[in-house]
Amino acid sequence: MTDRVRETRASGRSGVVLAVLVILALCVMGCGKMDELGYEPEVRDVDVARRDIKEVSSRILDAMALEGGKVTPYGARVSICEPDPEHLYVMRHPWSVSGVPNAELERGMENLRERLPGLGWRITKYGEANSKAKDLEIRAEHTEKPYNVSITWAKNVAAGGSLISVHVNSAVCFRPPEGTDLNEEY
């Protein structure tokens, strides 16, 4: 065997050893974060996630079947996801409906209780909120999509009257595609 062949084989082995060490180091740094989550986050473009959560929210609004209510203009937003806020994110879409009488809001809550299961939601709570006001609350998890929702009928809001507040959240963290700067999305 020539010296050149020996050199090539030795450098090839050291390249393999180096690659294995790099993979192990990456796993030690990153795998622990995934262990904390208990799952591998789906790679999802932020704009796609934003459209998806808005669609989910829109179906909830449709299920309320309220006529003439004023919907807040809050948009879906990106929030950090622990344990890796530099590389993972969650979606949140808070909004509310107001400007209709309490009787209509009550009917909207009843519509949600009846219709959400048909839209793929499993209701985990329907009843009084754990608060001083004892407002009516619905909590639900989507059975097919990675979302949960908290809906509260605030019957006696002093400043602006009664309303139904809705908080749709992603139930898991997402990883943006390679090259996405999450700082530009927050």
Rank of each mutant, 00 (worst) to 15 (best):
R6H: 03
L105P: 01
R6M: 09
H142I: 02
A159R: 14
V20F: 06
E184R: 14
R115H: 05
G120L: 03
M109E: 09
E128K: 15
L163I: 01
P176D: 02
E55I: 13
G179P: 04
D84R: 09
A103N: 00
R9V: 15
N111R: 06
C31L: 15
P83H: 12
R122Y: 08
T72C: 04
V48S: 08
P94A: 08
T152N: 04
M91T: 07
R44N: 14
K70Y: 09
G38A: 09
D135H: 00
E42W: 11
A19Q: 02
R113D: 01
T180C: 10
S150M: 14
G120W: 00
D52H: 14
G160T: 12
S162W: 00
L18P: 01
I53G: 05
N183S: 13
S150C: 07
L116A: 01
R115L: 00
R122E: 11
Y186K: 10
L61P: 06
G38N: 06
V22I: 14
L182P: 06
P85N: 02
A140M: 09
M91N: 08
S96P: 01
G69Q: 02
A171K: 10
E141I: 06
D47C: 02
E178L: 15
K134L: 10
I138T: 03
C31I: 11
F174Y: 11
E178N: 13
V78I: 09
K145G: 04
R4W: 09
V28Y: 10
P177M: 05
S131R: 01
V71L: 13
